[in-house]
Amino acid sequence: MAAAAAAGAGPEMVRGQVFDVGPRYTNLSYIGEGAYGMVCSAYDNVNKVRVAIKKISPFEHQTYCQRTLREIKILLRFRHENIIGINDIIRAPTIEQMKDVYIVQDLMETDLYKLLKTQHLSNDHICYFLYQILRGLKYIHSANVLHRDLKPSNLLLNTTCDLKICDFGLARVADPDHDHTGFLTEYVATRWYRAPEIMLNSKGYTKSIDIWSVGCILAEMLSNRPIFPGKHYLDQLNHILGILGSPSQEDLNCIINLKARNYLLSLPHKNKVPWNRLFPNADSKALDLLDKMLTFNPHKRIEVEQALAHPYLEQYYDPSDEPIAEAPFKFDMELDDLPKEKLKELIFEETARFQPGYRS
């Protein structure tokens, strides 16, 4: 834990890192770190609560700039109880001085990944967590956004079992017609939660990839272990087919990539493993919904509104309290091709509203 900075004593240090967030945020305490930044909790002297502050230093890398800009653009436009918001952003007053960006968010005690390492969940908890994931996802999908990296560590939890989806750095506007060349190379989302079509096709992607990830998360809540822990690309596919069985001819016809289709045709026939054999203690309604989410063919996979209306979630289902976005989200430009200098300018502009004396 960093010592509390005395008023006016300059930035606090946390594990050798400068955290320049005073005077409003003090009493910093280390939480963890990701690929390009550290997260601390801090005391907000204005709202009198502890908050989470993520320090991001992305400006050396085009990919990190892209992810940072995506996350900020999306989260500043989203407003939903099951999606983490941005409360404040701290950065230098000029673009030349801006080396880091500090993002202030609600402090959540833990995440689903940490929880599943230590606790076996009751059916009631599984049901409530799944409902909140789908409630947040309904809003995301209504904005025409794909999260693309749903996994237990991106689901934040607090002691009252509130759940918030975080990390929109890989999110995209849904565009089933656009052929994202190089899709697989830039697709760094965790393999275990990846839909089979991501490994088999490169053309376009749809909201059904997020539903697949939610199915993987439900299976993990039922058993405290990942359902498809593939060691590499082909191993991942083999794990999936080992449980779902061989795809039907109709399902194979959806695979545009001939090499991928021929690979699947070359494999020995596998039978589907019954879900109640894998999860003998699970609620039968939970397994019915799991089956509809972990469907090989993305066109037959359940959609988020149908999933919310499934009998497993009937005690929570309330369409009048499951809000959607006001308007579909649009990125003005494809960020993939922009140089990091341009992305830095866009991050600077996007964060201006939090600067003292800002006038829109």
Rank of each mutant, 00 (worst) to 15 (best):
A3T: 13
A5D: 12
A6V: 10
G8N: 08
G8D: 01
A9P: 09
G10C: 10
G10T: 08
P11Y: 03
E12A: 10
M13N: 11
M13D: 04
M13A: 02
R15S: 15
R15A: 05
G16V: 15
Q17T: 00
V18W: 00
F19N: 11
D20V: 14
V21M: 13
V21R: 07
V21P: 07
P23R: 08
Y25C: 00
Y25E: 02
T26F: 12
T26W: 05
N27I: 15
N27Q: 00
N27P: 07
I31C: 06
G32M: 01
G32R: 10
G32W: 01
G34S: 02
G34Q: 02
A35L: 09
G37Q: 00
V39P: 07
V39Y: 07
C40H: 09
C40E: 14
S41W: 12
A42W: 00
A42C: 07
A42K: 07
N45W: 12
N45E: 07
V46S: 11
V51M: 11
A52I: 06
A52Y: 00
K55G: 15
K55N: 14
S57A: 14
S57C: 12
P58V: 13
P58H: 15
P58A: 15
P58F: 15
E60C: 06
E60H: 14
E60L: 12
H61M: 07
H61I: 07
H61T: 14
Q62A: 09
Q62L: 15
T63L: 13
C65L: 14
R70C: 14
R70Y: 03
E71D: 12
E71R: 09
L75W: 15
L75G: 02
R79A: 01
H80N: 13
I83Q: 00
I90G: 02
I90Q: 03
R91S: 15
A92V: 13
T94P: 13
T94F: 08
I95M: 10
Q97K: 15
K99H: 03
K99G: 09
Y102N: 14
Y102P: 05
I103Q: 15
M108V: 00
M108L: 13
E109H: 05
E109Y: 09
D111A: 15
D111I: 00
D111K: 03
L112A: 07
Y113R: 13
K114T: 10
L115Y: 03
L115F: 01
L115A: 03
L115E: 03
T118K: 13
T118D: 05
Q119K: 12
Q119G: 11
L121T: 13
L121H: 03
L121K: 07
L121V: 13
N123G: 09
N123V: 03
D124Q: 12
D124W: 02
I126L: 07
C127E: 07
F129T: 10
F129Q: 08
F129C: 00
F129Y: 14
F129H: 08
L130I: 06
L130G: 05
Y131M: 11
Y131S: 05
Q132K: 14
Q132G: 04
I133K: 07
I133G: 02
I133Q: 05
L134I: 07
R135D: 08
L137D: 09
Y139M: 06
I140L: 13
S142P: 02
S142I: 04
A143F: 02
A143H: 03
N144C: 08
N144K: 12
H147M: 02
H147S: 01
H147Y: 12
H147T: 11
R148S: 08
R148T: 04
D149T: 01
L150K: 06
K151N: 13
S153H: 05
S153A: 07
L156A: 06
L157D: 06
N158I: 15
N158L: 11
T159R: 02
T159G: 04
T159F: 05
T160Y: 08
T160Q: 08
T160V: 04
L163M: 12
I165F: 15
I165P: 03
C166R: 12
C166F: 13
D167R: 00
D167N: 15
F168T: 05
G169E: 06
A171N: 01
A171P: 08
V173C: 04
A174V: 14
A174I: 07
P176G: 03
P176S: 10
D177N: 11
H178S: 05
D179W: 01
D179Q: 02
F183H: 09
F183Y: 15
F183C: 12
L184V: 04
L184A: 03
T185P: 15
E186R: 11
E186F: 00
E186Q: 08
V188F: 13
A189G: 07
A189D: 06
T190G: 11
R191S: 11
R191G: 09
W192H: 12
W192I: 07
Y193L: 11
R194F: 04
A195E: 11
A195S: 13
P196F: 04
P196L: 12
E197A: 12
I198E: 03
M199S: 07
M199E: 10
L200M: 13
L200G: 01
L200Y: 11
S202L: 10
S202N: 12
S202E: 11
K203W: 07
G204T: 09
G204D: 07
Y205W: 05
K207T: 13
S208R: 05
S208G: 10
I209P: 04
I209A: 03
D210P: 04
D210H: 08
D210E: 13
V214A: 00
V214R: 05
V214T: 11
V214P: 10
G215P: 09
C216T: 04
I217L: 08
L218Y: 08
A219S: 14
A219R: 10
E220R: 07
S223K: 07
S223R: 12
R225T: 01
R225C: 12
P226F: 02
P226R: 08
P226Q: 03
I227D: 07
I227F: 15
F228S: 06
G230D: 14
G230P: 02
K231Q: 07
K231W: 01
H232R: 01
Y233M: 12
Y233R: 10
D235Q: 11
Q236M: 06
N238A: 07
H239R: 00
H239C: 09
L241H: 10
G242A: 12
G242I: 03
G242R: 04
I243A: 01
I243P: 04
I243V: 03
S246Q: 00
S246L: 05
P247E: 01
P247H: 14
P247G: 03
P247R: 00
S248L: 07
Q249S: 01
Q249T: 10
Q249E: 01
E250A: 05
N253K: 12
N253I: 15
N253L: 10
C254F: 13
C254N: 04
C254E: 04
L258C: 08
L258A: 08
R261C: 10
N262Y: 14
L264A: 08
L265N: 01
L265I: 06
H269S: 05
H269C: 09
H269R: 00
K270Y: 10
N271R: 07
K272E: 00
K272Q: 09
K272C: 09
K272R: 02
N276A: 12
N276M: 02
R277K: 14
R277P: 07
L278I: 11
P280M: 08
D283T: 05
D283I: 11
K285V: 12
K285G: 11
K285I: 15
L287G: 05
D288R: 03
L289Y: 08
L290G: 06
D291E: 12
K292L: 11
L294W: 03
L294D: 10
L294A: 10
T295D: 01
N297W: 05
N297L: 08
P298I: 01
P298R: 09
P298M: 03
H299L: 15
K300N: 15
K300T: 09
K300L: 11
R301K: 13
R301C: 10
I302K: 09
I302P: 06
V304P: 08
Q306W: 05
L308Q: 13
A309L: 04
P311W: 01
Y312H: 00
Y312T: 12
L313Q: 14
L313V: 09
E314I: 00
Q315L: 14
Y316S: 00
Y316F: 15
P319R: 12
P319T: 14
P319S: 11
P319E: 05
P319F: 02
D321C: 05
D321I: 07
D321F: 08
E322C: 06
E322N: 03
E322L: 08
P323S: 11
I324A: 03
I324E: 00
A325I: 03
P328H: 12
P328D: 07
K330F: 02
F331L: 15
F331H: 08
D332R: 01
D332P: 05
E334S: 01
L335C: 01
L335M: 13
D337Y: 14
L338R: 01
L338F: 07
L338I: 07
K340A: 10
E341V: 14
K342S: 06
K342G: 08
L343R: 00
K344F: 08
E345F: 02
I347Q: 11
I347W: 15
I347G: 08
E349A: 06
E350V: 14
E350T: 03
E350C: 02
T351A: 12
A352R: 10
P356W: 01
P356Q: 04
Y358S: 12
R359E: 09
